[in-house]
């Protein structure tokens, strides 16, 4: 068959080039198709519509007394809502920023006029355990905030990292006070 193929093949360069072009075009176009097919196959693993619809949570905070905290949920993650006492606020303010691994003032971590409300994710920034300290009687660590028992991270009263392996302060999610007693997280 080789002899025949050679005999029949157009000998001029132009013919060969035109032929190569059509194969190249077909294969490239098919390649685009394969790439486009991969999109839904990858995209499907992302958060689905029902998960995204949980993007905000309303919490009634009227029952939280100063010094107390509650655990609630936002996007299936624990959220700590703490009503700080004036002493705790004062303690947080007394710390010089230069002592902090992730320098942030308590004012940056609370809303103006509501600085007794400290709202953070209850997810340790080290490897994601839930720190202790939100419930009554739990170990609040060396700095009177939260303490993560997994690898020993200590957070202070403004939930800033002070000791242990965690790299950052507990995350403050986006939230807003819809009224004096209701806060919307997310």
């Amino acid at each position: 068959m080789d002899s025949q193929a050679i005999a029949a093949a157009p000998s001029d360069d132009e013919g060969v080039r035109r032929r190569d072009f059509i194969h190249l075009a077909a294969v490239s176009w098919a390649g685009v198709g394969v790439a486009a097919t991969v999109v839904p196959l990858v995209y499907q693993m992302g958060p689905s519509g029902d998960v995204l619809s949980l993007s905000s949570a309303e919490v009634d905070i009227s029952a939280i007394q100063p010094g107390q905290a509650i655990k609630t949920q936002w996007r299936k993650q624990p959220v700590f809502i703490r009503n700080l006492t004036p002493q705790e606020i004062a303690a947080a303010k007394a710390v010089p920023l230069s002592d902090l691994r992730d320098p942030q003032t308590i004012d940056e971590r609370t809303k103006p006029g509501k600085e007794n409300w400290l709202i953070t994710l209850g997810v340790c920034t080290h490897l994601g355990c839930v720190p202790l300290g939100a419930a009554e009687g739990e170990n609040r660590g060396d700095y009177g905030g939260y303490f993560c028992p997994c690898h020993g991270s200590h957070y202070d009263t403004a939930a800033r990292i002070r000791k242990g392996p965690a790299p950052r302060n507990l995350t403050v999610p986006e939230y807003a006070f819809t009224s004096d007693t209701v806060v919307t997280i997310g």
């Binding site: 999109v39 839904p40 499907q44 693993m45 519509g49 029902d50 998960v51």
Partner: peptide, 25 residues
């Protein structure tokens, strides 16, 4: 199979979950 779940109470709804909520489901 990543989204389906084989339970008599949940299978039908999980298929609808795929149809409605899962990206490109």
């Amino acid at each position: 199979a990543m989204h389906y779940y084989a339970s008599t109470g949940g299978a039908f709804n999980s298929v609808e979950h795929i149809m409605r909520d899962v990206n490109a489901g």
